[in-house]
Amino acid sequence: MKPLEVMEDSAMAVASDSDIVLARNQGRVVALRLGFRPTDATLIATAISELARNILLYAGSGEIAIRPLERGKQVGLAVVARDSGPGIADPARAMEDGYSTSGRLGLGLPGVRRLMDEFEIHTAAGQGTTVTVKKWIP
């Protein structure tokens, strides 16, 4: 495994649907390099896919940053999805299964929460949205 300090933060612009594929591929590469099992790397890649699509769908553009985490002896990975879009007026509802303002499945954000270990959302109407999710190597 590569030492964490040589792995740089990688922030990627999300502005088209091919960026969704690039971001999730990058997430998988970083996760595997940190020592995540392939199964967990798939969970992380799927979560990034959902977060990147939300950026495109609701804000038009934004960025995804993937960075390694250390907590004592534990190693993990953080994904920060940030946009300056319209924000979410009712974040509590956005976390409910089946709730969607876009006519889609409404499993995006609640699904991401289930895929990852930690989930944080900062948003308000007109203020953009930042979602931070973390997963730790068990």
Partner: peptide, 13 residues
């Protein structure tokens, strides 16, 4: 694939 099925079940898909 098995890992994909695992992720889908976690998501609720």
């Amino acid at each position: 694939q098995p890992d994909v099925a695992f992720a889908m079940v976690h998501m609720g898909l």
